[in-house]
Design a protein around this nucleic acid. Structure first.
Lengths: 239, 239
DNA sequence: TCACATTTGTCCGTATGTATC
DNA sequence: AGATACATACGGACAAATGTG
């Protein structure tokens, strides 16, 4: 791989639908198109780009499967700009599991290490509102448990909120993708109410440690918590 | 989002091209189709599934952008079963970084923390061939520097090789995504030969520490290295 | 509630460029 | 080098779905 290769890359992709797709992507990256905006209809796009409708459709397939747009038919339709990239990452991770390219063990190990880092930065950067939000999360989860409802959503949200508190987008993206996969696994397994309750208790203790800025305690609790989760997932995997 | 939603999902996708795509995916998951196998041509697929060619084409776009097949045109073509899912995940992470406008500062900080973890697992799991590969990387970079050529490719490759040595695909994906962004920034900034040379020297020292299983030393060197990179990038960013 | 207009989903026929034998 | 097979791309057509008046 010499540098020449990067300097003189083709002006346009040989395939028109790829060119159209990356042009639209570029418009999104540069902020000309924002989430919620609508693209013109397929026919109109074909006219403006001066290509056939089939080509436009294939471009839209690419954008759709990369999480940039969503498409509804009928009436006042037209592709809508979305940001569901993280969901797409989750879907691909799931494919990778099925094709035996990534194991649950690898994922939980990476999660453990990365979330240990996250919790440190969360303690340094969290503000009052975010601590409030985390308390609300615990309360909501507890209410569900009281009513005998499993609180998976809240329990996953807890980890996302921690990542958000680091104020670092990289951690947010990585943690959210991993949690999407975890949520997916859990929804298939269907955890019992006892487990869910146990998780909430752990989260509450972790939050107390964070609010008290007790760094080591928070990390230790998290590690214990995730090792427990890991063990539970693995025992279910081999069943 | 209750569990009901997951229990009663539609029997078949309303869109035929999605149905075709998931049928072919299923054949891959179940082992009927293996990497290297060829799918029939578009026309033949259309005949067998009893759908139009356009529908088949859109299915192939989905499979292609999910990393299951690759397509070459002309001659004895026909879609080939591949497994590039992990590359697709990396591409999507890269998109996510771009769309969230991740700053270089955030990125290098996350890199610093995540690579510190990576180097620990790399020391535990690296084998002889991989150490050899890393030495080759250093040699190639040095040769370029001698010839007054900037060795950006090799310097980025060094970090990817470290991630590979952990034997954990999640680390590989995360590191490769981050390095893609770093490479992008560097190609815009255009580092000077002195900086590039300095980086190679650091990499060599790190590699020595890894080969000698000197864990703490390796981590310290890496930290020092990345902090230096961070400082250099910031001074260039604010220019 | 109902009809209408718009838009996506699908199919067919055809032309062209390209890679392989 | 020529023939062949294939993906790419265009245009026209109709069906199905859906929001709006």
């Amino acid at each position: 791989m010499n540098n020449q290769e990067n300097l003189f890359k083709p002006i346009k992709n040989s395939r028109i639908f790829e060119e159209v797709s990356s042009r639209i992507k570029e418009l999104i990256f540069e902020g000309f198109l924002k989430v919620g905006d609508r693209l013109p209809s397929e026919a109109e796009l074909a006219r403006q780009f001066n290509v056939g409708r089939q080509t436009i459709r294939e471009s839209l397939r690419l954008l759709e499967s990369s999480g940039f747009i969503s498409i509804h038919r009928g009436g006042a339709a037209g592709p809508i700009i979305k940001d569901t990239i993280l969901i797409r990452i989750k879907d691909l991770f799931y494919d990778a599991f099925r094709i035996k390219k990534v194991s649950l063990e690898e994922l939980t190990l990476a999660r453990l290490e990365i979330e240990k880092i996250v919790i440190g930065y969360a303690i340094d950067n969290i503000d009052e509102n975010e601590i409030e939000e985390l308390w609300k999360n615990i309360t909501a989860a507890k209410e569900k448990i009281e009513a005998n409802i499993i609180a998976t959503e809240e329990n996953i949200q807890f980890h996302k909120l921690l990542a958000k508190a680091t104020k670092n987008h990289v951690f947010v993206i990585v943690v959210e993708s991993m949690m999407a996969v975890v949520g997916d696994s859990l929804s298939r397994i269907g955890p019992d109410i006892e487990t869910s309750s146990n998780v909430v208790q752990f989260h509450e203790e972790i939050l107390k440690a964070i609010a008290g800025k007790k760094r080591d305690k928070a990390v230790n609790l998290l590690e214990k918590h995730l090792l427990e989760v890991k063990g539970r997932l693995q025992s279910l995997e081999t069943q």
